[in-house]
Nucleic acid binder design. Sequence first.
DNA 1: AGCTAGGGTTCAAATAATGAACCAATAAGC
DNA 2: GCTTATTGGTTCATTATTTGAACCCTAGCT
Lengths: 274, 274
Amino acid sequence: MSTIAKAMHLLNTLADMRTEPGLTDMATASGMDKATTRRMLVELARFGFVEQDAFTRRYRLGSAPVRLARIREQRYPFASIVAPFARELVATTGETVHVSEPAGDRLATVHVEMSDYTHRVIIDPGQLLPLHATASGLAYLSTLGPAELEATFATPLTAFTAATATSTDQLRERLNEGRRLGYCISEGGYEAGVMSAAAAILDAKGRARGTIAVAGPAMRVDRAKLEEFGAHAAEIARSIERALWGTQKTGQDRHGRTEWMTAERSKTRAISQS
Amino acid sequence: MSTIAKAMHLLNTLADMRTEPGLTDMATASGMDKATTRRMLVELARFGFVEQDAFTRRYRLGSAPVRLARIREQRYPFASIVAPFARELVATTGETVHVSEPAGDRLATVHVEMSDYTHRVIIDPGQLLPLHATASGLAYLSTLGPAELEATFATPLTAFTAATATSTDQLRERLNEGRRLGYCISEGGYEAGVMSAAAAILDAKGRARGTIAVAGPAMRVDRAKLEEFGAHAAEIARSIERALWGTQKTGQDRHGRTEWMTAERSKTRAISQS
DNA sequence: AGCTAGGGTTCAAATAATGAACCAATAAGC
DNA sequence: GCTTATTGGTTCATTATTTGAACCCTAGCT
């Protein structure tokens, strides 16, 4: 395991904690040695990624991510541009909407707009979602070319609920359906009782830059409603694309090849999702 | 140099770039070997901290910081709570206002509210500010106890302009002035022609959690105006403190000792700013 | 006063990072 | 259309960093 991976793992562990942990908590939760944990925390603190409360000696996320997030959003706005569209989707569907971006081999939720219902799906901003088990993840996968999909098929597909697609065939079937409809659905595939539909947000070259998903409780949302939500999500995704990149959308690069064809052609590879 | 430090350095380098760099650009800018640079970028990409454009092969900041920033702001709101106060300060002073948080041995600008003047000070969100040369930095330093100040005095004080305080005595003098007035000023100490005044935002225990600063062009802002701005900034800082932590503010821990006294007493130290 | 738990530290052993030289593909020049 | 320069990406013996069991220190408890 690379040192950076360990540091990132520690950061993720800290992000997942419900309450501010002490050194021992962090070591336990991350499964690393106390000395290692501390060295890393100190180093991360030097750069503002974590902070230690001077009095309680507990650790928390620092301000550096806030700073980097500002820079990222300024150069490459996504969360901020997408927010009003997410609100619009909440207005038309009545259910909670979340927007995610690819981050390594998962999707990072970067924006959430809550439903007004008292009984609603609650999504933590910042949650990391698996690709094969969520509507968002499926929508993302459905835009990838065969070469890029291999990495996902190569890893074991965790079953989060009975409805999770765990076989390669099942997964392929769902992706094909998604490509046909323009959106993907998950009927409790990640958490039982949570129905969701999602569409990918593509860039000018046809690559998925993120996803937008509607999620509601099974009690209120049935298959028919889910299909309706999916269509709305796909529609909003198109609007978001226009807002982000104007109206032109080719799906091909300047050589007239589609993007994943280029990726397959060359031997030296760009960083792949693994 | 630790591996984490190198990775963070790379992230900062990427954040400072005005345009999306290629691998060679990154290696040159960071002063690291090409192989090392690439290994780190790949590893950082795995966790979504950087992204590589699949077509141009150039690198950019990823979405992971956006995700972590959401979590941080949810648990420990600062940028979001402070924003309306910053706007208020722009309204009363007419000049650009920025809010920063300590991040390692510098301050990270986490929020900026621009002046309405055409000729105004422009501050990039996400900029890292040195402690000894900016009004914000001085305001921050002026809240520290002698033990914590040592680290700053130990490092050489870079002269950014002729007005930068570069001697320990000069710096001490400015900090004393700051403690007396409740705000610090910088007359072009970081960038010539930029006048600024800043006040620290303290937590319930009297530790600086951030700073709020007003900055205007020397053409329009003289010493007298700066003092006025400083007083306003200090006033707003008190309002921010009330919004963040209610009305009680002791400046002492539960043993009745001030925080830095505690820090001095113990031999094993909390993570210090160095 | 003694005990316990958690934060923090040490140093020989184990592991990961390094970078000069390399290949491959694209872009620039002729 | 061919040659060269540039840039992205990779390799592997060498080198430097990271590791963790055992340790110390302080605060809080009985």
